[in-house]
Write a protein that binds this DNA or RNA. Sequence first.
DNA 1: GTCTATATTCCGATAGAC
DNA 2: GTCTATCGGAATATAGAC
Lengths: 213, 213
Amino acid sequence: MSATTGTPLSEQSILATLEDSGDTAGATAVRLMIAAADAFSQKGFHATTTRDIASRAGLSPAGVYVHFSSKEDLLFQLSRRGHQTARDQLVAAAARADSPTEALRRIISGFSTWHAEHHQLGRIVQYEFRHLTPEHRDTVLALRREIDKVVRDVLADGVESGEFDVEDISATALALLSMAVDVARWYSPQIRRTPEEIGETNGDLAVRLVTRG
Amino acid sequence: MSATTGTPLSEQSILATLEDSGDTAGATAVRLMIAAADAFSQKGFHATTTRDIASRAGLSPAGVYVHFSSKEDLLFQLSRRGHQTARDQLVAAAARADSPTEALRRIISGFSTWHAEHHQLGRIVQYEFRHLTPEHRDTVLALRREIDKVVRDVLADGVESGEFDVEDISATALALLSMAVDVARWYSPQIRRTPEEIGETNGDLAVRLVTRG
DNA sequence: GTCTATATTCCGATAGAC
DNA sequence: GTCTATCGGAATATAGAC
């Protein structure tokens, strides 16, 4: 959070996510996760070497294995913590709203902003998923299903209250999530709009997508 | 196209795309591209070995280099041809429509269906982009800009004719493309809806997103 | 808990025969 | 144009000292 330390914004963002994820981790482990997140998001999982991660964290190649059992374990910890914070944020946004329309606007807006601010972690979570072991994939998939359910429940609430006009709840939920998740693919800190503006636009578009008149 | 040959659907789809892309290639080169597309989409560029590609194509490890100068060259050819066919399909769909509303419905519907039917190629094109050389990235980026322009032009036409009510054309174009491109991420042949149904739904949602009343 | 040194395996690409 | 054989290097992970 301290802008005076000279820590790059990307590391602040990743650090905050890792510390908020509800799990504890030693300072060196956190440093390794930040280094891995940086490297994975730049070059991808397989193109990143353990030597690269270690040297970014100021350790020897062997130092990684004191804190993580393998390179894949590092990817799993990042993926799990990333999904957890994203889900927690969605649930909190939905709970703060007092109507389905406001709930939908808040969750799509918040989710879009999150994927812009944390686009590195977002890309790791989406693009490196296949490099997890089958067991770790299952764990992450369970978290994804929770995220999908938040969106589908808000849509169902709005249909029941008559605020929304939606034919296929699952299909609409997928399209809304696509709008937000895909932000991580095209976002760059150099573009015109800020993460907050992207969230606002996508929140408005989401409401438009499900209302008539 | 022949369902009687026993060729897997995925290979038919990739084959058709490669042959329609306007470039010529020898039969062995096409076989190598199909093998590479299969491997890259399953395991990613860096996790795929040239030995794997060669053996899938029925060649020795050295046989690859007669037809392609490197593994990256194979990725580039797949990426370029994939973008070319996607762009050609978009342009054709826009040209067939006689109103901005129908043009938008057709291009988003067609683009969504394409990303479902060709989800392997779609993932390669989107997720492996960073593994291209800077020069090859530039070539592919130029094709992407053409694709973006088709969508923005349709939106501008509709705003001018009064059919569309759009605040920010670029932001809306991005959200519409996200809806279609992201299909490649979540689509699986096992899901409930067919590629055509996905296209129809997304085409309808797109029109809804830009019209009032 | 961190280091140096290394075991073990595998990779992309090339040489040269046919 | 395809093969066998291989070069040169790099990868993940471990062993064992401190």
